[in-house]
């Protein structure tokens, strides 16, 4: 066997092994979360309906007084509310900034704005949380009253955190659009604004949807920063100023103090499974958007 074909074989084996390893890793994590998360329903007899649609969370209550109740509606609505609102702010802001970087000020935008956005992405989430706790929460308290720990504090912190994701994916998409389309639009006599609004943005639609969904997925999964500013009150928030709780913060707060195999601990795993299913859902949306966009 000559040297070349040996390296060829070795390379093939290496890539295949690595690929197999990643697949096995993913499958085993899904299996583990799945088996733990489903045991709430199979071995503890909690109904799926109670878990998803009840807001009665009393896992420490003894069976004599109504049994452990693990309704996590408050956590689910909390997670959904906080991520939708943060995307509501960040999606328009992020896409407009991306347009600015690509179309309006390519030189300046690329030299100054893009590194700034990348820096924003590099700040650890605990630091965002700490800033939120020290600045944002007192500010909301003095501006709007209440305790300051609120849905509003949560989605404001999150909207800053997901901004870099949305901006950088949108920038890449806009840049990848064929220059001919832009030139054609100008040739038809369109102004710059008309070109951006009616040619560039519609053409980049699927990539922009991907950017927003990625941002939303990040918001949904973020735990630490959110946990520090939302107050973690196990209730469905009545307004943007009420304290609330998310799936992720409920898991981080209780996971170490509950005993493995108990209803309580397994209910936390079920929430983890729900988060996994949500991210699967987000991935499917992106796949769908990309396929539609390719046509």
């Amino acid at each position: 066997m000559n040297k070349k074909s040996f390296y060829d074989r070795a390379g093939l084996c290496l890539t295949m092994l690595c690929a197999a390893f990643v697949i096995v890793l993913t499958m085993s994590i899904i299996y583990y979360i799945g088996s733990k998360g489903l045991s709430t329903f199979t071995s503890h007899g909690v109904s799926l309906r109670e878990f998803l649609f009840s807001d009665q969370w009393r896992p420490d209550r003894p069976p004599g007084e109504g049994g452990p109740q693990v309704g996590s509606l408050a956590f689910i609505t909390g997670s959904i509310a906080v991520s939708l609102l943060s995307v509501g702010i960040s999606a328009p802001l992020g896409v407009i900034v991306a347009v600015f970087i690509v179309e309006i000020a390519p030189g300046w935008g690329q030299r100054v704005l893009q590194p700034a956005v990348e820096l924003l992405a590099g700040i650890p989430s605990v630091v965002y949380g700490y800033i939120g706790l020290s600045l944002l929460v007192p500010l909301i308290r003095s501006l709007f009253g209440g305790g300051g720990f609120s849905l509003m504090a949560g989605f404001l912190v999150l909207s800053v955190m997901i901004l870099p994701t949305i901006i950088s994916v949108s920038t890449d998409t806009l840049r990848a659009q064929p220059a001919e389309w832009k030139h054609a639009s100008y040739a038809l006599g369109a102004t710059r604004w008309q070109t951006i609004r009616m040619a560039m943005l519609p053409a980049a639609r699927s990539g922009l949807i991907t950017a927003v969904v990625l941002g939303m997925a990040r918001a949904f999964g973020e735990a630490l920063a959110v946990q520090m500013v939302i107050g973690n009150t196990r209730e469905i928030p009545a307004s943007v100023l009420s304290p609330m709780i998310t799936l992720t913060s409920a898991i981080t707060m209780d996971m170490g103090s509950t005993v493995q195999g108990g209803t309580w601990n397994n209910a936390l795993w079920s929430m983890g499974l729900l988060l996994l299913l949500m991210s699967l859902f987000f991935i499917l949306i992106i796949r769908f958007a990309v396929r539609r966009g390719a046509v």
Partner: peptide
């Protein structure tokens, strides 16, 4: 129901502020 935090340091900071 009230605000919940899991670390003593954070609880102290919140109460003092």
């Amino acid at each position: 129901k009230g605000i919940e935090q899991d670390s003593s340091g954070t609880v102290r900071k919140i109460i003092s502020e």
